[in-house]
Design a protein around this nucleic acid. Structure first.
Length: 332
DNA sequence: TGTGAACCTTGAGT
DNA sequence: AACTCAAGGTTCA
């Protein structure tokens, strides 16, 4: 199959949702380390896997366009006519609209939140004007958990490559676009095998191989995939406690999973960047020189006090800005 | 409670 | 061409 860049070539294969840039900036959100599975397949077009399907997304003014690729036959063939697939899988547009609205949490009004954070925090106001439309994704808990276990003491470029290899090795193959294969994120059961750790080590996961297979086992033998998803309905503190009991999951990874997949908008992941920002720019006074559990808690509490119940969302804006400091976004 | 070291690998910086 | 060092941390003394 061929990648699709833009609606103009085959308009019938695309749909759009109303969505102004102040509510969502696709480029900022999909490349700021919340999810590691999106790729800018051509300028302005983002291709990735969501809910077991391959999508290409594109923003054009106040519209968010999307197209979904069907699964290929066993030969990977697809008939074409005038450059368009002859029989593209009929989209269930109600379902795909819903998936996208849910993933981007489009029912949450972001511009109002920006106004409130800016009113409470001059530093936020200064940064946010250059980084509008940064919102928190609502990701699948399994994908989010295992992705962020891989982030510890690691670089984003390597994390992305590791997760790609994880999906290739353990995930279901979905389709091939311009001869590039796409795979679903593996199910929990795919990571519980006796040889999982060794395979992950061979894929360059290092010491995280044990954490990934260990957490997969622990969940499979404990709360299960359903139980993990049920953490969406329990209080933040409880979800955090459950997650921290898993191997390779400390306070920071637990907060990432809480914020990015379990609906805990108040969770503020404190990584080295946020710790630095808290001390240097907000002057948060802390006793020790290292990020102790107590300091971690205090920084989170400080930002929750400053930004309110969606502090994690505001943190995502600052984190995105910090990640891109030096390069101003082209405001198209 | 708090501190320090080890942990896999990679890529950017001397 | 080596070599050091940090990278969205966690675990164990």
């Amino acid at each position: 199959m061929k990648l699709r860049d833009a609606p103009s070539a085959c308009p019938s294969l695309w749909r759009c949702l109303p969505c102004p840039p102040a509510e969502l900036r696709l480029d900022l959100v999909l490349s700021s380390g919340q999810s590691f599975r999106w790729w800018e397949s051509s300028p302005g077009a983002w291709t990735g896997v969501l809910e077991g399907r391959v999508w290409t997304l594109r923003q054009d003014g106040d519209r968010l366009w999307y197209t979904v690729y069907g699964e290929e036959n066993e030969h990977g063939e697809e008939e074409e006519r005038d450059g368009c697939p002859a029989k593209a899988a009929r989209l269930d547009v109600v379902e795909t609209d819903r998936i996208l609205r849910d993933y981007f949490q489009l029912d949450v009004g972001l511009s109002g939140l920006y106004r409130a954070w800016a009113a409470a925090d001059p530093l936020f106001r200064k940064v946010a004007s250059d980084f509008p439309g940064v919102r928190v994704l609502r990701q699948d808990p399994v994908e989010c958990l295992f992705s962020f276990i891989c982030t510890s003491n690691n670089h984003i470029s390597r994390i992305t490559a590791m997760i790609e290899r994880l999906c290739q090795a353990f995930g279901r193959r979905l389709c091939c676009l311009d001869s590039r294969p796409f795979h679903a994120f593996p199910a929990l059961s795919a990571l519980t095998g006796a040889d999982a750790e060794a395979r992950l080590r061979a894929l360059g996961f290092g010491y995280r191989a044990k954490f990934v297979s260990g957490s997969a086992r622990a969940i499979a033998e404990g709360l299960g995939t359903e139980g993990l998803c049920q953490l969406r309905t329990v209080p933040y503190a409880e979800a955090r406690r459950v997650l921290c009991a898993l191997p390779g999951v400390g306070a920071k990874v637990a907060d990432c999973v809480c914020l990015l997949s379990l609906d805990k908008a108040e969770a503020v992941p404190v990584d080295t960047h946020v710790w630095h920002i808290a001390r240097q720019r907000y002057g948060v006074a802390l006793g020790g020189k290292s990020l102790t559990p107590r300091a971690y808690q205090e920084i989170g509490d400080f930002f929750r006090g400053l930004w309110g119940p969606r502090a994690g969302w505001a943190q995502a804006v600052l984190f995105c800005a910090d990640l891109r400091k030096g390069q101003k976004p082209a405001c198209s």
